[in-house]
Amino acid sequence: MIMIITLRESAMLDDFFVRAILAGVGLALTTGPLGCFIIWRRMAYFGDTIAHSALLGVALSLLFRFNLTLAVFGVAATVSILLLLLQKRQALSADALLGILSHATLAIGLVMVAFMSWVRIDLIAFLFGDILAVSKSDIAVIWGGGIFVVAAIVWLWRPLLASTVNPELAEAEGLQPERARLFFMLLMAVVIAIAMKIVGIMLITSLLIIPAAAARRFSPTPEIMAVLASLIGAVAVVGGLFGSLTYDTPSGPSIVVAALILFIFSLLPRLGRRQAQGQGT
């Protein structure tokens, strides 16, 4: 595995930089709409938990010499469904359950990796991403998976949005919110499996949440917010990568910092809210 390399050490604007931008933008377009639902439904901690479980997937894939992306998806999907089932029993609060699963899966993953003395892996690359190492096949996975996820979100849009406002209302009016929720969690698992290589386990949720939060102020409808979140995410990826090139900083964290800067900018002008309030009486 390659350590996080900074751009200055390598050839400027080489092929890999274009690949990194393609991969990052593809991921950002996917995480936009998904991230909106994460913040509307207050599932930020859920996203973190699923992301942390990805390390267990990495360990299992190394142990059984199984495809990495599929192993991460498998573990993330299992943890999501486990959460759904445990929440239904209402023995522990959702918050406490997330706290347990989040750190348990991360710790088990780390312990398993430590036991496998025959493999040498670069943990930092998994935890914080290695976008400059993406291959052409990685890009195919990101765009293929991304198109699948966005198509599924469009298909599930109405039941997902209605059950975000009120699950019982969605159920009463025939929209099957439970099914939508299950699909949504599986989509989260897909995105985490394809995002892990790019921004890493620790930073995946930031790419989901920060662009969506930055889009809120400029969005009059949920649909516009989803599209804006994608665009803001794409700008953050490009900005972060160029920042990493200019200032010789690690790429994954640079993307998150760029997203954060956009979010802070979105807070500064108090335009969006005023206009919306002007409509009321």
Partner: peptide
């Protein structure tokens, strides 16, 4: 939730 931009008009077409 405040983070969800929902006007009365959009609320009307929530489930269909």
């Amino acid at each position: 939730d405040w983070t969800l931009p929902l006007t009365v008009r959009r609320l009307m077409t929530l489930t269909g």
